[in-house]
């Protein structure tokens, strides 16, 4: 099984994040950048499938130079190799154009299975898997909490608002995963060392046959006009329970007309 895992580098959601004041893009320079958490679950799933069925696991990232840190980190979990789409013209690329670039890169890799996170912690779009499937003309099974593979057939259990659904499709397919699907492994010392020598291929836009004005700000289908800090909430009243905390709570709710 030829598996490609999409890995996005994002600013750490546990720290303060911001947009750049000059061009309203995500500030990556001053942020702690990490692998999008859901993508680690996608990597783990890929490794487990490889362990069961054999094959190869390739990491695919589109992102700036510093994304190589995340690529090495991803490789240290155990994948075989990585592809990094890297081109200065990509700065400012919107989601629609990102899907064009990733789809082009996927075509060169011709995978049986594309695994990715259900959503990124910065964009929170949840749209990439379906956009890629649309471009590649393959199936998208999204939000998996369980994936089973039987020959060419993939079956996914996915959470919905009302419960869950079981959906099925033939390879090739894109499957996006939630953190309920598995428990990602910690990189072993051996794998951390090995990751340093694993091949990372860099692809430029020219390699993918995409013109510079199809991406970046020039090719963007949407624009951020401005951004501002949202005023932090201020703390209100705090009481210490000395026997009537519950009653005081209800008094507050009543004053606010909730009861």
């Amino acid at each position: 099984m030829n598996i490609v895992v999409l890995v996005k580098q994002v600013p750490d959601s546990g720290a303060e994040r911001n947009l750049r004041t000059d061009d309203n893009t995500v500030d990556r320079a001053s942020a702690d950048n990490v692998i999008n958490e859901m993508d680690e679950y996608a990597i783990e799933e890929a490794l487990q499938i490889k362990e069961r069925l054999g094959g190869e696991v390739t990491i695919l990232t589109m992102g700036p130079q510093r994304a190589t840190e995340s690529i090495r980190k991803a490789l240290s979990m155990g994948p075989d190799k990585a592809v990094h789409v890297l081109d200065d013209a990509l700065h400012g690329t919107c989601a629609v154009a990102t899907s064009k670039v990733l789809a082009a890169a996927l075509r060169t890799l011709d995978p049986d299975l594309v695994l990715c996170g259900a959503e990124s912690t910065d964009g929170r779009g949840q749209i990439m898997p379906h956009m890629l499937a649309e471009r590649l003309g393959i199936a998208a099974l999204t939000g998996a909490r369980k994936l089973t593979i039987d020959g060419d057939q993939l079956t996914v259990e996915r959470q919905t608002e009302e419960g869950y659904e079981v959906v099925t499709a033939a390879k090739p397919a894109v499957v996006s995963v939630w953190d309920t699907i598995n428990e990602p492994r910690y990189p072993s010392f051996k794998n951390i060392m090995a990751a340093k020598k694993k091949p990372v291929q860099t692809l430029t836009l020219a390699d993918l046959g995409i013109a510079a004005d199809e991406v970046g700000f020039a090719g963007a289908t949407s624009v951020v006009l401005e951004h501002s800090k949202r005023p932090a909430r201020s703390a209100g009243r705090k009481v210490t329970d000395e026997g009537s905390g519950g009653q005081q709570l209800v008094e507050f709710l009543a004053a606010e007309k909730f009861v």
């Binding site: 994040r17 911001n18 947009l19 910065d122 963007a220 949407s222 951020v224 006009l225 951004h227 800090k229």
Partner: peptide
């Protein structure tokens, strides 16, 4: 960003 930043954006295509 966890409710910390307000963005104004527009579809341009």
């Amino acid at each position: 960003f966890a409710g910390s930043v307000i963005v104004k954006a527009k579809v341009t295509r």
